[in-house]
């Protein structure tokens, strides 16, 4: 096991990714902060902050989907594969980098940007004309407004989504995001068709028809368990697939 995982090597990997992407990441953080600042500027303080999640999730999913784009260039692919670290280490570091570093970076730059925008709004709202325009009540977004339970389940879904797009990025390399989404849709559609077939053929016995798909409610503990287990299983599955695929990658 020591041959596969070395703490020092993984730290080196993290460091090398950081050094390589430093300027790109900084630009991304500034762009996100800028977008959030704009939202902060124009949105009322009592408004819904859903766009927060939308922007962040989109950015993170795009980051995941472009992770292995560099493998499409032969010289880069060779360079990456020949880097002295095990495939397991490289996979783990890539996943951790996406799910921890980039998520934190997005959250921090979003909050900072948004807060800045709100401050700017308050400043401008001193002028009555703008105050009416923004409908501002003078309050500023507070961290206490964030529901951490919702954040938790959202993070789980996010991790799951990242793992799917990460694998897609490795499997498809070019136009990975598009292809992954198409496959995903195809998969969901196939599942849908399957459901319809099952319901129309066997569902009658259980009082189900195509027009009436009310399944009996499961006890709450079961529902919560399924809510947590399904994304977990998916995530672990795609993480493992990413590892296997990287091991087989040739350049």
């Amino acid at each position: 096991m020591e041959k596969m995982f070395s703490k020092d090597r993984m730290l080196l990997l993290i460091r090398s990714i950081f050094i390589q992407n430093r300027s790109k990441d900084l630009r991304l953080a500034l762009v996100v902060a800028g977008i959030m600042a704009f939202f902060g500027l124009v949105s009322p303080s009592h408004g819904d902050y859903d766009f927060f999640g939308v922007v962040n999730v989109c950015v993170l999913l795009v980051l995941a989907g472009t992770t292995y784009k560099m493998l499409a260039v032969p010289s880069r692919a060779m360079d990456y594969l020949m880097l002295p670290a095990s495939t397991a280490e490289k996979t783990v570091v890539t996943i951790a980098y996406l799910n921890i570093y980039y998520v934190l970076m997005m959250m921090v730059s979003s909050f900072v940007g948004f807060y800045f925008g709100q401050m700017l709004q308050n400043l401008i709202a001193i002028v009555p004309f703008f105050r009416d325009l923004f409908g501002s009540s003078g309050h500023t977004f507070a961290l206490s407004a964030v529901s951490f339970h919702k954040l938790g389940s959202n993070l789980l879904s996010l991790t799951c989504g990242i793992s799917v797009l990460l694998f897609g990025s490795l499997y498809f390399r070019r136009h990975a995001i598009l292809k992954t989404l198409l496959v995903g849709c195809g998969f969901c559609f196939a599942l849908f068709i399957l459901d319809m077939i099952v319901i129309s053929s066997a569902g009658y016995a259980y009082g189900l028809t195509i027009n009436n798909v009310n399944l009996p409610d499961l006890p709450e503990w079961a529902e919560t368990t399924i809510e947590i287990m399904v994304p977990c299983v998916f995530t672990l599955f795609f993480w493992f697939m990413t590892y296997l695929r990287l091991r087989e990658t040739e350049a």
Binding site: K3, Q20, S23, L81, M82, A85, R247
Partner: peptide, 26 residues
């Protein structure tokens, strides 16, 4: 297998080299 032990003692220099956006020092 591309084990780290092997990779630490083997270097492949292809005809096309990858030139990162870093200075030599970095």
């Amino acid at each position: 297998k591309r084990s780290p032990d092997m990779l630490q003692d083997l270097y492949y220099l292809g005809e096309e080299v990858y030139a990162p956006q870093l200075t030599i020092q970095q």
